[in-house]
Each structure stands twice: as structure tokens, then as C-alpha cells.
Design a binder for these strands. Structure first.
Lengths: 195, 195, 195, 195
DNA sequence: CATGAATGAGCTTTCATTCAT
DNA sequence: CATGAATGAAAGCTCATTCAT
């Protein structure tokens, strides 16, 4: 029923990101998105099941690219330490490139309803898997401590990246997010303990 | 105008936590909260400015206790490592004690509007300050690495605790959250690197 | 049931005039009037049937005095022309003395509901009768034209006084209302036609 | 935002007049007006900003026509006396033609809130200006007494017409309003004094 | 394919009135 | 007599979704 391709499909997704980033999730009415996309209200429903579907599609599309790009970069790194570094760096640098998407991801989409959370679960799973793979490889290669609980470590990694990014967005993206890559990478690798 | 004490005040706060935890933020109408609190709709407005005020008060009240309890526990610990351990342990154990509040904090309140986010900023700041103090003390005493960026470390700590807790809530609190204290503590202290 | 005497009765009436004049009819909640009268909300209902009853009583009490005073002044005048003059003069000067009551009468009470309009009908009737008496006496004494329709003339007189006063109130009572007595009196007596 | 044309716009205005005239201002809920106009509640808000806007538009639309018609009739009259006569006659006859509108104008709209009063100020000003013009012309042509205060005379004219009409409406429009044209006209011109 | 006017269910908040103390 | 905390009905407005054109 809903045709998920075509230039109008993309126009609507892009419009949605802009509107939500600019006006906030609670002011992102379908009619506003339609107007921003230069499309009639009803046209939205030729490409999306309902409003939630716009948001889910938006997130999946963008986050799908995000994960894929990140995965590609990681694949190019040689050492495990490098891979972890690239993971952090790519996370920060990709979100730095698109403030609108960063705001939507870190702030606005969290204000959405349960439906949406479910709809985006799949892509998030892929990101989590990506992080898990790096960790496992590190353990297998004897670089990371063998007793590390992969899932806990992944939550640390993701939780930290997420919190750092959210803080940055809430401070209006005013400083350089990528700059923190090294600090974060160091904390992940060596923790806080001095020698 | 709004009298923020009394047993009805508490009854409404408690009812709100239950209703939101059970039915979700988007189904938590004022009338439902009133009914759950065994109070008339209008009575709500004798104790709260508006609906947002219920949620903000709820969070501040509960989270205020949370921070205070955590702070007290930490004060009792002797070594820095112990303090960090207690920080993690208290975070997990307190949220383990009140699944409803955990759900409201980790999931539902994030679906709220910007106004609420602002209203709860102050208590969160206090929690962040508490974490910062521990980190700073650790650095000052030479336990933590001197080059650590306090704010980044704090974001790692909070981000991790938050992510671990959210995962647990989304898995219906089915496993023992406190059990992860040690893993998390270890990661914070020593990172992932094997020796 | 409602005891219409006592100092609290008066206090409530006076408070009502002040509150309505200051904040407007639509912001004159019972609780505000009670507060202004330094009385509990419930106390209002020991002296008045309901909110409308406050307003009706207020109007009748004040307007009753108004009519009585006006009647007394008129009685003291000798000629018919004098009586008409006094009628106009008293109307303007009495309302000039109490801006709050003027505002309530001319503006706020007209925003009230049908119940109130009915409740104040009786005193208005007395004022209309007073005007009618003057007109009739003028006709009987051959001073006013015998073909004048008393009711129409009365409506002209009251309508004019009312409109002039309302304009004055809406201009914040900034100019001298009584000053217009002569112009109005002249128009009533001789009309607009030049010789 | 609100499209102030189209047949639905008119249907809503007409429905509002009927509902308010029949049930009174305080019983004229938006949903009732919508039902009477055979339109959904939400449709109202495609054509009007809010409830007040319905009433303001209604009044301005109808009263605008009223003033225009009256002005046209007056322009056709030759002598000043004729113009004054036509002014009175048109006022009465136009309101006689639409009892519902008369009731809304004379009774119900006065029960509205300050916002509405402001919104209708402009059209009233135009009516006042029209009356002023007639008076001034009368003075300039030496028909009316040169010492007449235009604004006072206008208040007499409008106040009288208004009071006569209100009385008629409150008596259920049971008698012929236009019949009083002559009495009123005479009073305006010659006053009450016999020769 | 595209439009956009129309729909109508749903929710927060106010405030006159009551009644247990 | 007096209090004032509690009541709960009532109404304006929004906005995702539909469907005739």
C-alpha cells in the first residue's frame, strides 16, 4: 500500500528531519512536514502508513547508513585498538556532519511513542551487533580482558557515546564533538585507574 | 497556589508513577491519575500547577531521594575505588527496588515534552555533580589518571549506568540488575584492555 | 436560607464591586471575592444563594440607592425644566463619585447572564418610573409637548444617559462627566433643530 | 490560516446567529454551532481562529452590511431632516427584518467578553462616524443648532436608537419597531419642550 | 498519482458549590 | 456561624487520517 521509494519519499523523509529538528517532535505535525516537503497532506499517506511510519522510516534509513558507514570504516582498521578508535571516531564524526539528524536521534525521537521505539529496534540491534563484534574480536585476539562481559561492555560503549553526543546536542553542538574521541577511547581501553 | 505537601500530594505522585509505569506516558491522562489516586480530577490542580508539574514534581521528588541516598552511601565508603563501587551499586540497587519508578525514569519520562526536560534538569545536575566529585577526588588522591577529563568520565559513568538500566527495564526487569555492579565497576576502573 | 444583612454581607458586596471593577466580570471568581472580603469561600453562601445572587444584590443595593437619591434631588427641584436638569445631573454626578460601581454597571454587568438581567429588572423599573413621572408631569403642566410618547421619551433619556456614561467609562473616566449635563439637558428639551 | 470565505463560512456564521439567538450566548457551544451548520466541530477552526472570532466575524459582517445599507439610504435623502429621518428609519427597519440578528446584537453580544468588544469596535466606529457626518452636515447647513456638541448629540441618537431597539427585543419583538420612527425623529429634532 | 478540505475523537483545566469539621 | 479542601461536570481546540475530485 505504501510505496517506499521515489523522490517524494525522500523529500518527505528529509522534510521530516528538518521540521522535527527545527520545531521539535511535539510540533512536527503531518501537515507541517507535508508543507516542508512541498507535497499535499494526503500524499504523505501514499508513501507512509501513518505518522509513526515516517519517523521509523526516517530513523531506519539514516541510522542504517550510519551503521553501514561505521562498519565499513571499522573493517578498514587493522588493530583492535584501531577498530575501537574508529568506532568512536565514526560515531562522533558522522553525527557531527548532520546536526539536524543528531538532534532528531538524540533528543526528539526519544519523545516519541512506544510504537516508534519498537520500529527502530532492528537497526539499533545491528549497531549493537557491530559493537559486539569488535569487542569479541578483541577478546578472541587476547587484546581485551577475557573476563569482560560483552554485553556490559557494549552498553558502556554505546551508553557513553550516546551520553556524550546528547550533551553535545543539548549544548547546541557548539563545540567540537570529534575532539573527545581520544579521551573516550582511552577510557574504554584503560579505564580511569592511574598506574 | 499549588500546595506541594500533604498526603494527597503524595497519593497523586504515587498514583502517577503507577499509572505511567503501567499504561505508558501517552496514556497517562490526568483523569486516570486522579482515579488511581482516589481523588477528583480537580483536586489534582490544588496540588499541582498542571499536568507537567505532576511529572516534574514526581521526578524531582524521587530522583532527589535517589541522589541523596546515593550521596550518603558514597560518603560512608573509605577508598575511592569503594566510592565508585558504591556509586554503581547504589544506582542499580535503588532502581531495582522500585520497578515502576525505574520504568518511568528510563523510558516514559523521555517521551515527555521539552518543558519537563527542563524542569528535571536541576536534580540531574546534582547527580552529575555527585559523580564529578568522586572523579575529582580520585584524581586528587592520585588514584585516577591525572589526564582524565572529568566531564567525559562522568558521561561515561552516567551513560553506562543509564544504558545498562534501560536495557534491564526494557527486558521487563527480568534479571538481577545489581549483579552487574562488579563488571561495570571493573570497566570503569581498568577499561577493556587486558594486561 | 441566605441572610441578607450583617457586616459580612456588606463586606462581600463591596468586595464584589472592587473585584469586578478591577479584574472584569469574567475574572471575578467567587474565591477572589471571598478573599477580597476577607471571608472564606463557603461563607459567601451563608449570605447569598449563589454567585448570581451576589451580583443581583450588589446591583439592586447600589442602584436602589442611586434611584432613591435621584428621586430625592428631583423632588427638591421646582420647575419641570429644573427636574429634568437634576435628573441628568444626578445621574452623571452619582456615577462620577464611584468609578468602580460605574464600571460594574455600565460594562461588566452587561456581560453577565440572563438570570442576572432578570434579577435587576425590578430596580430598573423603578428608575424608569421615576423618569416617566417627570415626563408625565411635564406634559400635564403643559411644559412638554402633549403628543410626546412617554415611553419613547423615557427611552431617549435613559438611552442617552446610559450611552454617554458608558463612553466615559470606556475612556477610563478621564474627563468630567458632569460637564455634559447642560448639553444633554438642552438636547432633551429643545432637540437639535436650530431656530 | 483561517479562510474567511466560502459557503461553509457563511453557513457557520448563520448557524451561530441562530444558535445564539435561540439558546443565548452562554449556551452557544462551538459544538452546537457546528451541528446547526451541519459541519464537524473541527471544520469551524478551518474558517475561524477561535470561538471569539466567530462572534466578531458575525458581528462585523452583519453590522458592516447594516452600516453600509444605512449609509446608502441616507445618501439618497435630500434634506438634513430627511437624512436624520432615514437614519432612524433604516436602523429600525433593518433590525426589524432579522429578529435573530437583532437579539444577538442587542442582548447576547453584550454578554460576551472584552476581547469581543474590542473586535467589534471598528465597525461601531464606522456607524458613529456616519451619525457624526449627518450631524455635522446639519450644523454646517444651519439646520441644526450651531452650539450642539456633535459627540453628545451622536450619543443621544445612538443611545436612543439602541435603547428603543433593546426594549423591543426584550418584549419579544411583538410590536412594530418601525412605527416609532416618527416619535424618535421628532424628539431628536425638536426635543420635548412644547412651544 | 496527487490533492487538501473535512472529519471527530480525545484531553486539560476551571470554578461554582458543598459539607465535614 | 465560619471554614476551605474537595468535588466533577463541562467545553474549546488539535491534528492524524480519509476520500471525493
Amino acid at each position: 500500500m505504501a510505496k517506499k521509494t521515489g523522490e517524494k519519499y525522500q523529500a518527505i523523509i528529509d522534510a521530516a528531519v528538518r521540521v522535527i529538528a527545527r520545531q521539535g517532535y511535539h510540533n512536527a505535525q503531518v501537515s507541517k512536514i507535508a508543507k516542508e516537503a512541498k507535497v499535499a497532506d494526503g500524499t504523505i499517506y501514499l508513501y507512509f502508513e501513518n505518522k509513526d511510519d515516517i519517523l521509523i522510516s526516517l530513523f531506519n534509513e539514516k541510522m542504517g547508513n550510519f551503521v553501514e558507514t561505521n562498519r565499513r570504516h571499522i573493517a578498514e582498521a587493522s588493530s583492535i585498538e584501531q577498530k575501537l578508535y574508529v568506532l568512536v571516531h565514526a560515531h562522533f564524526s558522522q553525527l557531527s556532519l548532520d546536526h539536524d539528524f543528531a538532534k532528531v536521534t538524540q533528543i526528539e525521537l526519544r519523545q516519541s511513542n512506544p510504537h516508534i521505539s519498537e520500529g527502530i529496534g532492528n537497526v539499533m540491534k545491528q549497531y549493537f551487533d557491530l559493537i559486539d563484534e569488535v569487542i569479541r574480536e578483541g577478546i578472541d585476539k587476547g587484546i581485551f580482558h577475557p573476563d569482560i562481559d560483552v554485553r556490559v561492555a557494549r552498553k558502556m560503549i554505546f551508553g557513553t557515546l550516546d551520553e556524550v553526543t546528547t550533551s553535545w546536542v543539548m549544548k547546541q553542538c557548539k563545540y567540537d564533538l570529534v575532539y573527545h574521541t581520544e579521551s573516550v577511547h582511552n577510557l574504554f581501553l584503560y579505564g580511569m585507574k592511574g598506574k
